[in-house]
Design a protein around this nucleic acid. Sequence first.
DNA 1: TTCGTCGGTTCACTGGATGAACCGTTGGTT
DNA 2: AACCAACGGTTCATCCAGTGAACCGACGAA
Lengths: 254, 254
Amino acid sequence: MSTQSVVTAIRVLEAVSDNQPAGLSELSREVDVPKATVLRMLRTLAELGWVAQSEAQAGKWVLTNHAFAVASRGSSGSVIRDAAMGPLNALQLDTTETVHLAVPDRGYMLIIERLDTPHVLRAFLPLGSRLPMHASSTGMAYLSAADEAFVDGYLAGPLEALTPQTVVDPVQLRTMIVDTRARGYSINEQGLSTGITSIGVPLLGPGGVAAGSISISGPSSRIVPAKYQEYGEAAAGTALEISRALGAFSTKGY
Amino acid sequence: MSTQSVVTAIRVLEAVSDNQPAGLSELSREVDVPKATVLRMLRTLAELGWVAQSEAQAGKWVLTNHAFAVASRGSSGSVIRDAAMGPLNALQLDTTETVHLAVPDRGYMLIIERLDTPHVLRAFLPLGSRLPMHASSTGMAYLSAADEAFVDGYLAGPLEALTPQTVVDPVQLRTMIVDTRARGYSINEQGLSTGITSIGVPLLGPGGVAAGSISISGPSSRIVPAKYQEYGEAAAGTALEISRALGAFSTKGY
DNA sequence: TTCGTCGGTTCACTGGATGAACCGTTGGTT
DNA sequence: AACCAACGGTTCATCCAGTGAACCGACGAA
């Protein structure tokens, strides 16, 4: 691996992100690098405007907005977002429920956009949330379109339960993935958050490769089984439109 | 400045963010560093999962979602967001228009959250958008609460016009800031985007320091002058609540 | 008073970062 | 078809920038 100081710096940055507000010794332990080195990295990152000392607690380090600003222009983020927002907007207006746009990130689904329901009772996920794939409709939808090797790898890893309803049994999850493929959409009943149900559909990018997913979410009292099919099909139609825009089915190669 | 390889790496990262999909020579020129060095940085960042070669165009580099995921847990982001989302949600339901939450980033306002209107005609800003301060209601609201030195510095810089309605005259902008202070809210009529009007109010953090701002936005056909006061006062009430939660007026220090 | 841990500093050593010069390829021009 | 400029990417001798063990003063608990 090259440029190890850069590697260290980025690892420090990620450690800050995960532990903020984070202390020096804490970070040093986390990254397994001497305090002096960690501090040097923090100072450098601070000069660049990516981290700062917390005003509330001296000696504690936090990420700045600038990091967010730079990273928001994320590539697949933008490309997918540009293709997705139009159809997604229509889907939201049709269903009147909250819709999410998510892309994969290291075993999690990252929520990159959200269009809100007008209802007072709202499912709420802050932008940038990372959801475990097995515990979210977006994740299961993504897995249903991902290649077998990825699914095997994911299911082999540790699977955490977020609510009593979260399914963590690999065998059961595999069945659910098969069902999702057959049905065209995934269903998550309170597996992510108690009282929330959601319906997910995968998005395909060039070459038909899984690129992300969309979902319709709301309180379980409104998203009842009788509506699954209607919402599932609406979302599937929207997803098809987006996938097409992403070039999933273009024969002309890339 | 210390750890120059880290500095170079981050500069390369930011250059990728600004120019993606970006080529090697292009980045080398942008950052003013030899191609070999830039390439080494790109490879290191790629190993860490922050950038990747574009699938569409070989040799072009793009940011990954992972960068976004790490950075979304941005500090002031989270703190302000946690304090703001409740009151902001109420404001959105009250006004039925789109509301935004923005924080400053190097002379721009960074949109970190959005709650949508149920109306079919929607003002739309993707999350992570950066708006020039002088061209947005959030920016003018922020400036109205920022310290004089910052305002002077900002107005001294180049001020770009985004629409024919954008005000770029420093003298006029200064008057608008004074008006905003007196009134309690800023008004932006089509200065950011033709057909969009918005009302902004600053948020204060600990010590009464400007920390960000909120806004109500919509089509100019709906956000008419007759509604300015109502919306402005509603937003000001919400902002007060958020600022209080952020500890803007606590006497107990920190 | 003692102890452990905190954030932060120092400095001699050396291995990792640097960048000029290079290669093969591509695409436009004549 | 010959040319050329610009592309992405590679090589390697040079040397300086990054490293980390040992250290400091401050603080809180026992």
